[in-house]
Design a protein around this nucleic acid. Sequence first.
DNA 1: ATGTAC
Length: 490
Amino acid sequence: MEEEQEGQGGIQESLKRIDDNIWEIPIGTKPGMNVPGRIFLSDKLIHNLEPEALDQVANVAMLPGIQKYSMAMPDAHLGYGFPIGGVAAFDEEEGVISPGGVGFDINCGVRLLRSNLTVDDVRPVMKELTEKLFQSVPAGVGSKSRLRASDSELDDIFLHGSRWAVENGYGVEADLEHCEGGGCIEGGDVSHISSKARKRGKPQAGTLGSGNHFLEVQYIDQIYDREVAEKFGLEEGQVTFMIHCGSRGTGHQICTDHLRTISQASKKYKISLPDKQLACAPAQSDEAQNYFRSMICAANYAWNNRQVITHWTREVISDIFRSDMDELGLDLVYDVAHNVAKLEEHTVDGKKKNVYVHRKGATRAFPPGHKDVPQAYRDVGQPVLIPGSMGTASFVLHGAEASMDISFGSACHGAGRVMSRAHAKKEFHGEDVKSDLEKSGIMVRAAHPSVIAEEAPGVYKSSSDVVNVVHDLGIAGKVARMMPLGVVKG
DNA sequence: ATGTAC
C-alpha cells in the first residue's frame, strides 16, 4: 500500500504495520535484538522517515535489559547512537544506562508562560518587545549571563535546580509547583563533574544558547479542548511566552566526559555494541551511576537556566506594559524536559517495576491521576509542550491514558529536522528568511543571521502532522495551538 | 546541541 521502499533489503522492508500509527521492526530483523522496535508514524510521515534512524531503533533494541520495545516518536530522526525522538526503558537491575539515550544537551526542554495580555495588546509593541527580550536574555553560541555563579552557588544549582533561582529572587514558589518534578531531580552528585564542566557552567546560568533554542512571543489561535485549556489557564487570543533551551556548555561537557568512562565500561562489562555511540554500562555499576548522578546535575542546571530566563522575561514585559506582575498574570503553565533519563515506576508484563526511561527528543506525557502530575492538573494529565520550528505553530497537549501502555508515558517533542544545518545554509539566506517572516507578521531577532537560515521553517517536518500522531494514538491530546509573533534566537 | 577540533 506504500511506495516508499526504494532500496532492496533495507530495514524499511521489514517494517510491519501494527495499527494506523504504529509500525514494528520485528525481533530478528537485525541479529541480537532483544525486543521489537516500534515507531509511531502516520501515512503522511512515513515518507520522511530516515532509514538510518530506523536502523538506530533496531540497534537500541539490542541493548541489555531493554523493556517491551525500542521506540521512536513521529518526529524521529538520526541522532548520536539513539535516534532523536527515541524512548527506551531499561530494567533497574538487569538493564543499562546510556548517555547516547539522553543526548548531549541534557534536559533540553520547554516552558510556557501564560499572560493576561491579548494579541491586540502586543501587536503594536512587538518590535520593542522582541528587541528588549533580545537585550535582556543572552543568546548565541558561547553567550554569557549577567549572572556569575560562585562554586557554592553552582553546587546549589546542580543539586536543587529551579529552587536556587526561586530562593534567589528569580521566581516564585508557584513556578516550582508548575514544573516537571518541581524543577529538580533528587539524587544529583557533583563529585563526578569535571572542573571543565563547572567552568563552562558558571557564566551560562540564564542564557538561551543557539540552534533551535528560542524565546518566543506567541498567541493562542486555536483551542482544541476547552475544558483542559481552562485548567491550564489558556484561552483563544491570549499571549503566551515560550522558552526552549537546555543545559548549555555544562551539560555538553558532562555528556562528553562520561561518554569516555561509559565507553570503557562497555568493554569492561563485555557489552556487545552494534554501534560505538551506544556506549552504556550496567545500570548499577559505578560508571553508570556516576554518569546518572552527574546527568541529574545537568538536568537541574537546565531547569534553573529556564527559571532565570523566565524572570528576565517577566521583567521586560512588566517594563513595557508598566504593569505589576499580578495584573499581567505571567504564570508558569508548565516546564518539560525532553532530553533526560529518569528512574520511574511502570507496569511491564502486568508487574510494577522501576525502569530507567531514556527520553531523547521525547516528552513525558503522564496521564490523569498520575502521582507526578501537579495537583492543579491531576485530573486532566500533565501539560505536554511541543515547540514549533521558527515561524511555525507550537502546541500544548495533555498527557493521556494510553501513554502508560504504549510509550512508557512519553510523547513527541517537536517538529523534527528534514534537512541538515549545512544543507539549510545552502538552501536559505538568513536575511531573506527574516524578511519573509516579518512580512507575515513575525519579528525575528537573532545573534547571527546564519542561525535563521539553519532554522528556516522549511527545514522541519510539520509539527501539526507530528502532534496528530500522538493525539490519534491517545498518548497526548491536543489542547491549544500557539502562533509566533516574535522570536529571539541565538 | 556544543568555546562546531580526534
